[in-house]
């Protein structure tokens, strides 16, 4: 009797549970989507809005060191938008020249990285599969060891009594040590060195897909290897080149560690300016305005990168 009761009681229970599960199942999809969307929305997108907001507020000696944008005063909502930070950025030649300098240093380093990286990527893509994997690993391995310590290693190389000067003086090429550390030259070396893997990997991914028969056809038609390279290989690897260049250029514009450790006091890069505004001057609104302008500068490179990456994905 009691068994029957439980049995009877179970049926609607099971149906209810099933329906509830079904409902959760229907919502499960949304729930799963919500995890990454909410996290990234809150911790990646919203912060930019906060930066934009604070770039329009006024600096103050307070905690936090800026005045609120709006306040409620006797039934009046007062909104104070302070564009002074932006006007200040365009007024003071320091900031403008820091932006120009950053873009210049990043662009030159990107070109050098491409010139070094392309032959390496080409060779890796053309080698036998076993060698290829070893060479690829050799490219990736430095990326896994500390970036900060690898930049630090260059101080020992470039110093006045550093390794390069010691070698050059020992073989009698120079009498006086060359000044290399704390110059723009050292910053170029640092950027090329650190970002070389970012250039090689997308180039490799592109070149390894290159159809050999195009090259053979070009050779059969009598083109010399150098002509084939410039008329066939190079145009076909365009999206790989753009992707690699943007992956180097974009972070290099905002680079802080490399100019701070290898550059001189007059190497003004915008990442360093932002850092100093924030940590030394404690001027958060100016630092925010610097960040917003930097983002605007980077919009076009970022769009180029997305386009190149989409082209690469489409070619697969």
């Amino acid at each position: 009797m009691s068994q029957q009761e439980t049995h009877q009681g179970k049926l609607p229970g099971a149906a209810l549970l099933g329906r509830a599960l079904h409902r959760i199942g229907m919502r499960g999809r949304g729930l799963v989507i919500a995890i990454p969307v909410l996290w990234l929305f809150l911790f990646f997108l919203v912060p930019f809005l906060v930066v934009a907001k604070i770039s329009l507020s006024e600096a103050a000696i307070a905690r936090p060191p800026y005045l609120p944008l709006w306040n409620w005063d006797d039934g009046f909502l007062n909104i104070t938008l302070n564009f002074g930070n932006y006007l200040f950025l365009f007024d003071d030649p320091l900031y403008l020249s820091a932006y120009v300098e950053s873009v210049k240093i990043a662009a030159v380093s990107t070109v050098i990285t491409l010139l070094v990286g392309y032959p390496m990527a080409y060779l890796i893509a053309r080698s036998a599969p076993d060698t290829r994997n070893i060479l690829l690993m050799l490219v990736i391995l430095p990326f896994w060891t500390s970036f900060l310590l690898r930049v630090y290693a260059w101080i020992g190389f470039l110093k006045g009594n550093g390794i390069i000067n010691n070698i050059l003086m020992k073989i009698g090429l120079i009498d006086e040590p060359l000044v290399m550390l704390q110059t723009d030259f050292a910053v170029y070396i640092g950027i090329v060195y650190t970002y070389l893997p970012f250039m090689i990997l997308p180039l490799f991914a592109n070149l390894v897909k290159l159809d050999q028969s195009y090259l053979e056809a070009s050779a059969d038609l009598g083109a010399r290897p150098i002509t084939t390279f410039f008329t066939v290989t190079l145009p076909l690897s365009a999206s790989g080149i753009i992707a690699g260049c943007m992956l180097v250029f974009i972070p290099a514009v905002g680079e802080f560690v490399i100019p701070a450790l290898l550059g001189g006091p007059d190497t003004l890069m915008i990442g360093r300016v932002l850092w100093n505004e924030f940590f030394s001057n404690r001027d958060w609104p100016i630092a925010s305005a610097v960040a917003i302008v930097m983002l605007v500068v980077l919009v076009i490179p970022i769009m180029l990168l997305r386009k190149a990456q989409a082209a690469e994905a489409g070619a697969k």
Binding site: V50, V51, I250, P251, G254, G271, A291, M294, L295
Partner: peptide, 11 residues
């Protein structure tokens, strides 16, 4: 690709 100084400041 976002420069680290921007990610750090914004967070």
């Amino acid at each position: 690709v976002m420069p680290e100084v921007i990610i750090g400041l914004s967070l």
